[in-house]
Nucleic acid binder design. Structure first.
Lengths: 194, 194
DNA sequence: CCGTTAGCATAACGATTGTTATGCTAACTA
DNA sequence: TAGTTAGCATAACAATCGTTATGCTAACGG
């Protein structure tokens, strides 16, 4: 036999592709401009990923795993170094809206398309499920009872995402961040024994 | 002079177009299949709306006004007939996920695209702002103090929308509706004097 | 009733779409 | 080192995209 496949090539490509999508979006994705931005011809895409549909599926799988890795690299469900739950919410907000903003916007685009039934495959549902489980672990580490953790985590995630969509769309910082403070206070009330 | 323009024609078309978009989405909108579904040629679209971009802009404006009308036709910010805030949340949930589902999915697609910066124009921001104001009025009617109404309305809207996205994507009815009950309880706690 | 024009279909324009057949080069195995 | 093949560019394919020039018909104002 002869030259073996390079199993890393696909992941390298996917990383570069996600970088491109963070700037240009996924809804209007076109193979030729994407390939040109990667410095290649379109054949690279149809060679490594059979078709455009399978490319998108691979992108979603890649994003799913990427988010999973990111979540694992966080300070961890440990008590987050003396920060209250509300503090964690506010710190995440600041991070997501600065350094991480392009990816955050891409994820909202993907989740909107997915909620509308315009994206198929298991990866977006898996991402949301994982996110709920991760936040539930954080809540448990802050003393939220097991029985309530997943339910409150789902609500916290939903409110957080909804506020991001509101802010990114309206730009109404004052109104949205007041609501974020309200959310942070609600989260803190979950951890104070009463 | 001769035959005058029919000012209703545009609105008739837009109603039919929104019906089509509720089924097929807006991200991959193509003029030819849309025109065929309307029983016309594509020229009807480029004649009444100068270009595809302006058509999409007109669609968003139409949806904005449609939502405004719908909101005005609701039971009204009056005390909603003995229902608690949480009851209103649960009743809206049931309605949005049955009869109104196609439009709800379209709106999530649009809001996701808008949050991602892939839609321009003032109409989507205006829709979200109006929604916040309307819910704030409902909260005020239930006794939430003026100072907190808009802030809590923004949070309630965000959580509600986020839960819809979660449910529509994951289909995890048990987890999401438990979180919805938690949200309904939180909303009720805003109206009980303490 | 005449003249104007809204409303629309038909058909075509060039550009862009996803996909594929062909062939070269360089990297690896045996 | 000889033979195989991964990796990719080039170029072309038919299909579809948004847009527009042309012309007909029916409705209205004068």
């Amino acid at each position: 036999m002869a030259r073996p496949r390079d199993p890393q090539r696909r992941e390298e490509l996917l990383d570069a592709i996600v970088g491109y999508l963070a700037e240009h979006g996924i809804a209007q994705l076109s193979l030729r401009p994407l390939a040109k931005a990667l410095g290649h011809s379109t054949y690279v895409l149809t060679h490594h990923f059979a078709s455009k549909d399978e490319l998108i599926s691979a992108i979603l799988a890649h994003l799913d795993q990427r988010q999973r890795g990111r979540v694992g690299a966080l300070p961890g469900p440990g008590t987050s170094g003396g920060l209250s739950l509300g503090d964690v919410v506010r710190a995440s907000w600041a991070w997501h809206l600065s350094e991480d903003l392009p990816i955050v916007r891409l994820l909202h685009e993907i989740e909107g398309l997915s909620a509308a039934g315009r994206l198929s495959g298991p990866y977006v549902p898996k991402m949301l499920g994982d996110r709920a489980e991760f936040v539930a672990d954080v809540l448990r580490a802050h003393g939220v009872p097991e029985e309530a953790a997943l339910r409150k985590a789902t609500l916290l995630n939903a409110a957080y995402a909804g506020l991001q969509i509101d802010y990114l769309t309206t730009g109404d910082k004052e109104r949205v961040e007041a609501a974020l403070d309200e959310l942070a206070g609600t989260a803190d009330s979950w951890t104070s024994r009463e």
